[in-house]
Simulated scan of single mutants.
Amino acid sequence: MDDGPAPLPAPSARALLVTVLGELVYPYEGPVWTAALIEVMRGLGVEEHAARQAIARGSAAGWIEAERHGRSARWTLADRGRRLIEDGMRRSAAFVEEPEPWDGRWLVLLVTVPQQQRAMRKRLYGALTWMGLGNPTPGVWLSPHAEAVDEARETVAELGLEASTLSFVGPVAGIGLSEDEIVRSAWDLEELGARYRALIDRYGDVDPAPGDEMLFTHIELLNALQRFLRLDPRLPVALLPDWVGREGGELFRSRRAAWSAPARARFREIAEAAGPG
């Protein structure tokens, strides 16, 4: 890999572990020794201590379950981990698909959370951002993906905010902000576009050798995809016709198609060769 500009800040050990679990452990369908996970994490630039800590925290979070063999362990995905991964798989599949024509409707949420409830505000903002909603003015969240209404309803209900939330689905009425102004106010697309361009510069011409190089490059790129999922609202062409993110989506789509099978095959070799660790 070259040392060009990073498309995103360096990922945490926890984030890399989630990618490894989803892309490698989930399809492996068997217990994996700690040593195999550490070998892959080390290849991704994570020191052993940090890798073990991430695994322990993944266990505490209910993502993985241990099968103890003396002081060593083999790991399988817990139900919570499977749900996390399957949700991520659905989102990533939708993310790299060609966008459907937009019908002009917006999903709009007006949510009031008292200033003193900072933890609640943080949870709400995190959930709505993960769904791709933008925040053009205080208390207003919106998305051109009106089909997200059911997920938004569940989020508001889980947080107990029904009594302080109003919602609408429909086109803008031409009062106040234009759609172009809404887009520029709701999302920081300039920084995101720069990150996409750095991603394309870094991975666009990469041709990793089979084996470890392909495995680690594949996981690095998938980890970037998972983080772009949280940043890119996937705006329709009608709102953002020349969006570099679509080129980024094609990069994710083509590289995953080419690299996933050989990367998983290499992981199987690592998993089957690993012993207690």
Rank of each mutant, 00 (worst) to 15 (best):
P5H: 13
P7H: 10
P9M: 11
P9T: 08
P11C: 06
L16Y: 15
V18I: 05
T19Y: 09
E29R: 15
E29S: 12
G30K: 04
P31D: 03
T34I: 11
T34M: 12
M41D: 04
G45M: 01
E48L: 03
H49V: 14
H49W: 03
A51L: 10
R57C: 01
W63P: 06
I64K: 09
A66F: 07
H69P: 08
S72R: 12
A73E: 10
L77N: 10
L77M: 11
A78Y: 13
D79L: 15
R83A: 14
R83C: 04
I85A: 08
E86L: 13
D87P: 10
M89F: 15
R90G: 11
R91F: 03
S92T: 08
V96C: 10
V96G: 04
D103C: 07
G104Y: 03
G104A: 01
V108T: 03
V113I: 14
P114M: 07
R121E: 02
R121S: 09
K122P: 00
R123Q: 14
G126R: 01
L133V: 03
N135F: 02
P138V: 08
G139T: 10
W141I: 00
W141G: 01
S143E: 00
A146P: 01
E154F: 01
V156N: 00
V156M: 00
A163Y: 05
F168H: 09
P171C: 01
A173F: 08
L177Y: 02
S178P: 04
S178R: 06
E179K: 08
R184H: 03
A186C: 13
W187T: 01
R197D: 14
R202M: 08
P208W: 04
P208D: 05
D212T: 09
E213T: 14
R227E: 08
F228Y: 05
L229S: 13
L231W: 01
L235A: 10
L239V: 08
L240I: 00
E250L: 11
L251N: 05
R256T: 12
A257W: 02
A257S: 12
A258D: 14
W259K: 02
P262N: 05
E269Q: 12
I270V: 15
A271M: 08
E272Y: 11
A274C: 10
G275M: 04
P276F: 05
